[in-house]
């Protein structure tokens, strides 16, 4: 794309967003994002469960019964689904569905979305210890423990593409081309993978 994409893009934003564009987000927005993401994953799992039941009914309608899962299995599936969901969302565009709604983006030290490995490790940390997020309320630069350890940042970014405009300069167009769209694709895709896990796990039973 062009080198002046970032300044041009920031002009599209409302003034309040322009002021905060590129700054690290606070604990309220991030907690809201976390709740929204949890809801998205849970809803996706529910949809996957209903789909799985429908497939069972189509195959054996006479002896149909809803698939049964233990609480522990549900927790494990939920954990795996969350890690996959966060990893894919963060590494593709730096944002999940929840971050997209609240206009946040996860960036690495270079200001770009994290690489796959970094995103996966951070997802593991965040899903395992979600309350560590609360440290961002105390930290002087609004960083959670995961951010401090992995040197990542969650910033306000209302733009569709990574390479926020708060810092005028090169918009990282080439590596982020179409990434804003990919997020939307990643969100429904991810639960499908969870569903695959679910089905595979159920077949083993």
């Amino acid at each position: 794309m062009t080198t002046n994409a970032a300044p041009r893009s920031s002009r599209l934003l409302p003034p309040a967003a322009q002021e905060r564009q590129g700054l690290r987000a606070g604990v309220v927005s991030r907690a809201a994002v976390m709740l929204l993401d949890i809801f998205v994953v849970a809803a996706s799992m529910a949809v996957a469960y209903v789909t799985w039941g429908g497939l069972r009914f189509a195959r054996r309608s006479a002896s149909f019964s809803w698939p049964s899962l233990s609480f522990g299995e549900v927790v494990i599936l939920f954990y795996v689904a969350c890690v996959l969901y966060l990893t894919i969302g963060w590494t593709t565009a730096g944002r999940t569905a929840g971050k997209r709604v609240f206009g946040l983006r996860l960036v690495a030290r270079d200001g770009r979305p994290p690489a796959l490995g970094l995103a996966f490790v951070r997802a593991l940390v965040c899903v395992s210890f979600p309350l560590l997020l609360l440290w961002s309320a105390v930290d002087r630069s609004n960083r959670s423990v995961a951010d401090l350890v992995l040197r990542t940042s969650v910033v306000y970014d209302w733009l569709a593409r990574p390479g926020f405009a708060g810092h005028a300069g090169d918009a990282s167009g080439e590596d982020a081309l179409g990434a804003g769209v990919d997020v939307a694709a990643a969100v429904p895709d991810e639960p499908d993978e969870g569903e695959t896990e679910t089905v595979a796990g159920a077949d083993r039973q």
Partner: peptide
């Protein structure tokens, strides 16, 4: 087009975002 559609799409959730800010 990509940026403006992103900005326009966010108009519906602007209140959410500003509330969060």
């Amino acid at each position: 087009i990509r940026d403006s559609s992103g900005a326009m799409a966010s108009e519906g959730v602007q209140d959410f975002r500003l509330l969060g800010m």
